[in-house]
C-alpha cells in the first residue's frame, strides 16, 4: 500500500481511538447517571497537569497515574457528594453546576500553574517502522492503550457483577435499592470512575498537546459531539460516535483539508440531532 495512504489510515485509527478514550469518562457519567458533566474537559486537564507535575518533579511518566487517580478521584467524590447528588434528575441544573465547576477548575489551574503553555517531553520518542511506514511510537502506543481501555471497560460493564448492578441501577433504581444495592454508593463510584477516566485520558494526551488552563474546552466539545452522534448511554453508541466524528474529521482532513473536516463534523452533528435525535444507534 502507498505509505501516504497507509499513514493517513493510521491517522484515522489514531483519531478515532484517542477520541473514544477521551470521551469515555463523559460517556460513563452521562450515559449512566444522566449528568452532562461540562467540567469533563477540566478533569482531562487535571490529568495533563499531573503528567506535567510528575515530569517537573523528576518522577517517571507513569507516576502521573496515581497522582491523577488521587486528585480526580477525590475531586470527583466531593463534587458528586455536594454538587451532583442534590441535582440528580435535574439535567439543566447539573449542566449549570458543572459549568460553574469547570470555570472554577480552570481558574484554579491558572492560579497554580499560570496562564502560559507547558509542554512535556514525549516519554517514548521517535518513530517506529510499522507496516511499511514510519509512525510516531508514542501515538502507536496510545492507539493500543485506548483500544484496550475502551474495550476492557465495555467487556467489564457487560460481564462483571458490578457492571450488571450499574445496569440494574440505571434501569430501575428503586428495585435495585430494594435488592440491597446502594444506589448512592454506586452512583458515587460511577461518577468517580468517570472523572478518573477523564484524568487518565489527560495523561495520555499530555505529551502531545500544549498543557494550559483552557485545554479542557477542546475535549469537552469533541466528546460532546461524539455523544450527540453516537446516542446517549449506549456503549455501541460511544464507539460509533467516536468512529463517525473522529473518522469523518480525520478522513476529510486527510483527503481535503482540516476546514472541510471540521465543517463536515459540525454538519453531521446537526443532521444527527435533527434526524436522529437519539443518536445513530438508538436505544431499544
Amino acid at each position: 500500500m502507498d505509505p501516504l495512504v497507509l499513514t493517513q489510515a493510521i491517522n484515522v485509527v489514531y483519531g478515532v481511538s484517542t477520541l473514544a478514550a477521551v470521551t469515555l469518562g463523559l460517556a460513563v457519567i452521562f450515559g449512566l447517571l444522566g449528568v452532562l458533566n461540562i467540567a469533563h474537559g477540566e478533569f482531562v486537564m487535571i490529568g495533563a497537569y499531573a503528567a506535567f507535575v510528575a515530569q517537573w518533579a523528576g518522577w517517571p511518566f507513569l507516576a502521573a497515574v496515581p497522582v491523577t487517580l488521587l486528585v480526580c478521584g477525590l475531586l470527583g467524590y466531593v463534587v458528586e457528594r455536594i454538587l451532583i447528588r442534590p441535582l440528580y434528575r435535574r439535567p439543566f441544573d447539573t449542566l449549570v453546576a458543572t459549568w460553574g465547576l469547570s470555570l472554577l477548575l480552570r481558574e484554579a489551574a491558572k492560579a497554580i500553574f499560570g496562564r502560559g503553555y507547558h509542554s512535556l517531553t514525549i516519554p517514548v520518542p521517535g518513530t517506529l517502522h510499522f507496516l511499511g511506514t514510519e509512525y510516531p511510537t508514542y501515538r502507536l502506543i496510545l492507539i493500543a492503550i485506548s483500544l484496550t481501555v475502551v474495550t476492557g471497560l465495555v467487556v467489564w460493564y457487560s460481564r462483571s457483577r458490578t457492571g450488571t448492578w450499574i445496569r440494574a441501577m440505571i434501569g430501575n433504581p428503586e428495585l435495585a435499592q430494594a435488592q440491597g444495592i446502594s444506589v448512592r454508593k454506586l452512583a458515587s463510584a460511577t461518577f468517580v470512575t468517570g472523572t478518573c477516566l477523564a484524568g487518565l485520558a489527560g495523561i495520555m494526551v499530555a505529551p502531545l498537546v500544549p498543557i494550559e488552563p483552557y485545554m479542557g474546552l477542546d475535549y469537552v466539545l469533541r466528546a460532546f459531539f461524539v455523544l450527540v452522534v453516537g446516542g446517549l448511554g449506549s456503549v455501541l453508541g460511544l464507539f460509533s460516535g467516536a468512529a463517525v466524528i473522529g473518522g469523518v474529521n480525520s478522513v476529510i482532513s486527510a483527503v481535503a483539508n482540516a476546514t472541510y473536516g471540521y465543517f463536515t463534523m459540525l454538519v453531521l452533528a446537526i443532521l444527527v440531532m435533527w434526524l436522529r435525535p437519539r443518536g445513530i444507534v438508538a436505544q431499544r
Binding site: 445496569r167 434501569g171 428503586e174 428495585l175
Partner: peptide
C-alpha cells in the same frame, strides 16, 4: 433506615409497578 439496609436486616420487597429489571 435506607431501603438497601432494610433488605440486609431481613426484609424483601416486590413492587407492583416495574417489578423487574427490563434491561437484564
Amino acid at each position: 433506615l435506607a431501603p438497601e439496609m432494610r433488605r440486609r436486616i431481613g426484609m424483601t420487597y416486590c413492587p407492583q409497578e416495574r417489578p423487574v429489571f427490563d434491561d437484564l
